[in-house]
Amino acid sequence: MRRHRGIRSTGIPEDVLGYLMVAPALLCILMIAIYPVFRTFSLSMTDMKMQFPDMAKYIGLNNYVKLLQDSRFWSATYNTLFFTVVSVAMELVIGFAMALIMNMPFKGRGLVRAAVLVPWAIPTTVSATMWKFMYHDQFGVINDILLRMGFIDQYRSWLGSTSSALWCAIIADVWKTAPFMGLLLLAGLQTIPGELYEAATVDGASRIKQFFSVTLPLIMPTMLVALIFRTLDAFRVFDLIFVLTGGGPGNSTETLTMYAYTTLFRNLDFGLGSAIAVLIFIFVFLISLVYINLLSRQND
């Protein structure tokens, strides 16, 4: 685009107007997002407690040293990573299947597309509450279904066992977000020109081969972007765990955000809690870097 810059008939230079128009949004971001990040960092170097805010003193990296030796921190990290990797992987596979289905012409496709959006649109606390009822060991419907179908011979406590509680959270998360993934991938599928498939069919490529030689490479960029969003979202999971298990049983579902929240607002330990928050921030930063790297390599 060619445009000449400079004074226009308004008398306001275009770039000044540009800055003016961006200013409110930028100011909000700087004040409510950027500045607090730095303050979290400085808080994390103190021993600030909400009960005694005036007695806070600088303690350097002590909080971090404490965390790195804290087995609870590492198990929360493990839980968070496990939750993130497994649920995002499942969402990707299921979402892909849904996208492929929704990409085919069939009766009621519009309805299906609308329906899959609903889980995404409702508050997580609501969906978590719904799942919590369904998981209940006595009054829950999941035990009832599984028993009727013969998968179990007696009621199980899905949320009360360290081996299944995190999986319960994963399933509830996949239920809520796989459709979202499906819609993003569907949009990607629809940008693939039909001629490519026709050409591949002429070449005698099977459907499966077409999927790997045409669909997958072309949808890769969309998929990576969708994966970034979902991975970062899954990594900061909080509402779901808060409602479903509160971090139990035996802390087996405590995620990093949950740990930070408890430390900050239940134990009122703002120093240590902020240090956990900073570490979460660093993890998120690293994850983004990996994806951006992958994405730019894709584009080359």
Partner: peptide, 14 residues
Amino acid sequence: MFPGIAIVSPLFLM
């Protein structure tokens, strides 16, 4: 991409 938890403590104080 900021996790909310990374800014919640200073925002609370602010």
